[in-house]
Simulated assay, not measured.
Amino acid sequence: MVPPPEKAGSLQSSRAFTISAFEEIKQIEKSLKEIYFISGLGADERVFRLLKFEGYRPVHLGWLEPQPSEPIEAYAQRLAAQIKTSKPVIIGLSFGGMIAVEIAKQIPVEKVILLSSVKDRYEVPPYYRIFRWLPIHRIFPFKSVLWAICWFAYWVFGVSVPDERKLLKTILLETDPHFLKWALHRVVLWQNEEIPEDVTHIHGSCDRIFPTLFVEPDFMLPNGGHLMVMHQAREVSALLEKVIG
């Protein structure tokens, strides 16, 4: 059935308006300032899903397959190739923060913000050094025993809400064992002593991965665990807005 001319014209006008609005939104998104995110060890952009950024466009850097025995500096250089902005703002979570520091040592950046992370070798807990000489993490069958360590992981990462636990378990299940072992070994071996300029460190007071005893953050979030980006997203978002300006 052919619609009346006036109705057909209305439909075409509505369709044209929809396309025009869509294109306008795309142009606005392109004009927004980009913020680059590097997630934690083996995780992805899902851990940042509750953060709010008004006036910015988040860009999530995807993990690459590490080369055999690849140094963290070389890996950071390869990952930085995904950055298309001059003097970018980079936000790194946990191991992603260590990578962000290594990137900032190689390219000019406007700002680096570390979440639940460390800035240099001195902030890595000293008891991790035992794994340099006893590298059981390189042979530990993480995937095979995940069912047995889930509750321990919930405690270590500081997650108690069912949705957060479900997401953490999914992330752990989907993490590539090869990447996990490589990244853990890079944490253990990290020898960085250089803290680039314009680094801001936000940490949780209850972080069990990188305890506050060993770190000197610029902002301490009360009761924040290692995954405070999830269970205290509102507070973290407010701090990020303050730092980015």
Rank of each mutant, 00 (worst) to 15 (best):
L146N: 07
L172S: 09
K143C: 02
Q77W: 02
K105L: 14
I171Y: 03
F131W: 11
K169A: 09
V145Y: 02
D163P: 02
A81Q: 12
C150R: 11
Q106P: 04
E102Y: 09
A81C: 03
V101K: 04
I99S: 00
F152D: 07
G96V: 11
F131S: 04
Y122Q: 11
I113A: 01
V156Y: 11
A100L: 04
P135H: 02
V161F: 10
L79P: 05
G96Q: 09
V101I: 15
Y128H: 14
S86M: 00
T85R: 07
W133A: 11
T85E: 15
I107Y: 00
Y127S: 06
D120I: 00
Y75N: 06
L134S: 01
I113L: 07
F140D: 01
D163R: 10
Q106T: 03
P108D: 05
A80H: 02
S94Q: 13
S116K: 06
K87D: 07
A80S: 15
T85L: 01
V109P: 05
K84Q: 11
L79D: 03
P88A: 01
E164G: 04
S116A: 15
R165Y: 05
A74N: 15
V89N: 02
F152W: 10
Y75A: 05
I91M: 01
K143D: 11
I91Q: 03
A153Q: 14
P162R: 02
L172H: 05
I136T: 12
R129L: 11
L114R: 06
I90L: 08
P126Y: 13
A104D: 10
R129K: 13
S144L: 12
Y128I: 11
K166L: 06
R165D: 03
L134V: 07
A100K: 04
P141K: 09
S160Q: 13
A76S: 14
P141C: 05
K105Q: 14
Y127V: 08
F131M: 10
I107N: 01
S144T: 07
A148E: 03
